[in-house]
Structures are given as C-alpha cells and as structure tokens.
C-alpha cells in the first residue's frame, strides 16, 4: 500500500466550452481527512464525480493506491475497489428499510456472500455507529433529512471503504446534528483510510479536516491547514470578493 490514496494528475473536465476542472493535480493521503472547499462552481463535486467514475475527464488521470486508473474504471468497479461516496443530495432508496440499506452497503453482490449472522452483526454495528438503531425497520422514505444523511453515510461506510467521499454531509442539518456528524467523521479516521469531505460550513471543516484544499475555477487556489487557509489573502478575496 502506498502512502497516497488518491493521486489526481493533470485533470481537465469540460462541459461544452466550460472548464469545470482545469489541469488539476493533487494528492490525498491515507489516514487524513481532507476537506475540499471553494465557491460554487469551483469544481468540487465534479472532482468527486471523476473519482467515483460518474464523469469522464477530457484529460489527465486519477490513480487509486498508486495503481488503478479511476478514469478508466466503471463506477461499480471503483466502488468494489474500496472507494465509496455520499452524494450531495441525500441519495437513499425510499422503498427499502434502513436495515436493508446497510446490508446492501456492507456486502456487494446479488446474493449475500457473508453468512446471515455475520451480516446481521455488521449491520447492527453500523446502525449503532450512525445512530439509527431505533429506525432500523423504517422505510428510508419516512426518515428526516438528517437521518437520510446519516443513513447514506452508514451505507457507504458499511463496506469498510479505503476512501470515503462525503459531499456536503452537513448541508441542511441543525447545529446539533452537525456536531454529531463531526464526531462521526472523526471517529471514522483510520491509518488505512482517506476521507474526502466537500463542505461549505467552515466551522465544520475546521473541526474535522487535517488539511484543506481550496478550489477556484477548477484549479487549486491553496492547500494547507484551516488556520492558514483563513489567513490567506487570495482565498479571502475569492470568498468575500474584492
């Protein structure tokens, strides 16, 4: 295992004539929580789209663990390689129970490969982690917005991913829910796991992130700790306007 989980190399994504990502390079290491911030349209979600195989870039490559080129792999192959992502808009299966979600996330395959008790244990464990044990048998469609966010996080972490991508995990949450989510994210940190968080809530970012990458117009504007980000003149310009 290399130290670098994700290596983005010379990446360019275009939608028509618009460059969503413009010759971007960055590295995300195992064991860190990396926050990607930037104004709307900076290319944050597009970056996650490329890493998870949803969007194909025009140029460049994205290497996972120093080997697999994610720009050539299918979404499902990328997921099976150990990269999981929570979407910006809570994406859950409204017609399925909470328990089913975790089971689907924990064990990929049309038939379950784990034996029933092992799967059951894993599901209970994850439900405990995201605090949805009481909701286990409810349909996802009946959950509140915050519960859906956690359910999706539970679903993506149930498989013990090597790379965990969280796209705006606290958008629309109450302060208390945000607080809980921050605890949850920090609890998920492991030496063999990289966590990428796209978020607008700077206080939340400050609490969870080890390093911060600021994107602007598809390029890296700044990279470093949150303190230095706050102090950087260029970043302040971009965020606050001149």
């Amino acid at each position: 295992m290399s130290l670098t989980a994700i290596l983005v190399d010379g990446l360019t994504v275009r939608f028509g004539s618009f460059r969503a990502i413009d010759d971007l390079s960055l590295a995300i290491d195992y064991g860190e929580v990396r926050a990607v911030i930037g104004p709307n349209g900076a290319g944050k979600t597009t970056l996650l789209d490329v890493i998870s195989g949803i969007t194909r870039p025009k140029q460049g490559r994205v290497l996972f663990d120093g080997g697999l080129d994610l720009t050539q792999a299918s979404e499902s192959a990328i997921a099976r390689a150990g990269l999981r992502r929570k979407f910006q808009k809570p994406s859950v299966f409204e017609g399925l129970s909470v328990r089913r979600h975790i089971a689907i996330g924990a064990d990929v395959g049309f038939r379950s490969r784990l034996d029933a008790p092992a799967l059951e244990d894993r599901v209970s464990e994850v439900l405990e982690t995201v605090g949805l044990t009481d909701q286990a048998d409810r349909l996802a469609g009946e959950l509140s917005h915050g519960q859906k966010q956690w359910l999706e996080i539970g679903m993506v972490l149930a498989s013990d991913p090597k790379v965990l991508m969280l796209d705006e995990p606290v958008a629309g949450l109450t302060d208390e829910e945000t607080e809980r989510t921050a605890h949850l994210v920090r609890a998920l940190v492991r030496p063999d796991r990289a966590i990428v968080v796209v978020e607008h809530d700077m206080d939340f970012v400050e609490r969870i992130a080890d390093r911060v990458t600021v994107l602007h117009e598809g390029r890296t504007l700044f990279e470093g700790s949150m303190d230095r980000v706050r102090a950087d003149a260029a970043v302040v310009d971009v965020y606050l306007g001149r």
Binding site: G53, I54, S76, I78, A79, F87, V92, G95, V108, S159
Partner: peptide, 12 residues
Amino acid sequence: RDDETRLRTLGY
C-alpha cells in the same frame, strides 16, 4: 428503481 447511480456507486 429508486436511485440507480447510488447503487452503482456502491459497487453493484
């Protein structure tokens, strides 16, 4: 049916 992309990005 509910969210195909979501399922695909779970490895299915």
